[in-house]
Nucleic acid binder design. Structure first.
Lengths: 107, 107
DNA sequence: CGGTTCAGTAAGCTATTGCTTACGTAAGTG
DNA sequence: CACTTACGTAAGCAATAGCTTACTGAACCG
């Protein structure tokens, strides 16, 4: 998932979907610098990564973010956040317990 | 930031830091498939992206996640999550209000 | 001191990636 | 039915990314 969001342009595409379903053409119009086929290709990558869902309506195809994916990403960073906090408090305790840190040549 | 986390190997490196500060050598030992210079290079990218902080102790250098960055990422997906929820309820209302989907333009 | 450990950097190579152009196709329109 | 709209896909290309090897430079150790 994060691999798919690694590309800045793809992130732009993805973020355009946050506020509601968009067709390929709409996304393309909102991103003049990106050709339409490029948009299609980005959407394909996003879809393969399960980051977006799509639904065909007539001749167009509407894309929207996949709630499951967004939740998973949130959970990922929540976990990281928790671990980092733990690590931080441990770090704080240690450095507090040994104030003059056994640095380089000071002591 | 997300660009930096786009690479799977780099994500591995980053995740190794979640549970506490690690030196380059330690990370390398935990990731046998990745050469030590590669680890250094990944850490450099992570540092340039402000995803990690580092502190030199003697001949080694300890890396740890940057809390600010993790919080920012959490916030990013939280926002996305909120927008997606709004979008979803709107979508639900519309489809509920108009069972046989209106085709082309606004009826 | 010399030697060793730990880490960052340089150079070069390969694989991947993202883009464009061109084409194919299904569905809506008159 | 043409014809148009909206997408997807194929092929090919240039740029980038990540890896490895080799070198350099600090800081400890004896």
């Amino acid at each position: 998932m994060l691999s798919a969001l690694g590309d800045p342009t793809r992130r732009l595409v993805f973020e355009r979907l946050a506020t509601g379903p968009r067709s390929v053409g709409e996304i393309h119009r909102g991103l003049p610098h990106v050709s339409r086929p490029a948009v299609s290709q980005h959407l394909r990558v996003l879809k393969d990564a399960a980051l977006v869902l799509d639904e065909g309506v007539g001749t167009r195809r509407y894309y929207r973010p996949n709630p499951v994916a967004v939740r998973a990403l949130r959970a990922y960073f929540d976990r990281l956040w928790g671990d980092a906090l733990d690590s931080f408090s441990t770090h704080a305790e240690e450095t507090a317990a040994a104030p003059p840190r056994p640095r380089r040549k000071k002591p």
